[in-house]
């Protein structure tokens, strides 16, 4: 079972209390950007079998969006962090690199 600790309310929430929101840390390309960049922003997503950074919403709970780092096939969770973050915290990156040096490249 997939479980994340919500960084806003501290509850260890199980998957049924959460709603998946797809890839995290997307950069928005708006008006004036190249067609390729806009296409990438709209449609192209990573789908790794391995470490992935994702958006999740604590839907059946405090209702807040947060970000999580997990392994998509082992369901190992490296950590969760607030949505107002532009990149994963150093300690989570360290944890990931210690186990999967090739991940997130």
């Amino acid at each position: 079972m997939l479980k994340f600790t919500c960084p806003y309310c501290g509850i260890e929430a199980s998957e049924t209390e959460l709603h998946a929101g797809g890839e995290a840390h997307l950069k928005r390309y708006g008006p004036g950007s190249a067609d390729e960049e806009f296409e990438g922003y709209l449609f192209l997503r990573k789908n790794p079998k391995g470490v992935h950074l994702e958006r999740w919403r604590h839907a059946m709970g405090c209702g807040k969006w947060f970000l999580a780092a997990r392994h998509t096939s082992t369901l190992e969770v490296f950590g969760t962090y607030p949505a107002q973050t532009h990149e994963p915290p150093a300690e989570i990156l360290e944890k990931i690199r210690a186990k999967y040096p090739e991940a997130l490249k």
Partner: peptide, 23 residues
């Protein structure tokens, strides 16, 4: 799906979750 162990959910703690299909 909440953890109902007395340590995880002490009396006086307000827990939001779902019961069956509903919030």
């Amino acid at each position: 799906p909440a953890d109902f162990a007395p340590k995880a959910l002490p009396t006086g703690e307000f827990r939001r979750s779902h019961i069956g299909q509903v919030a």
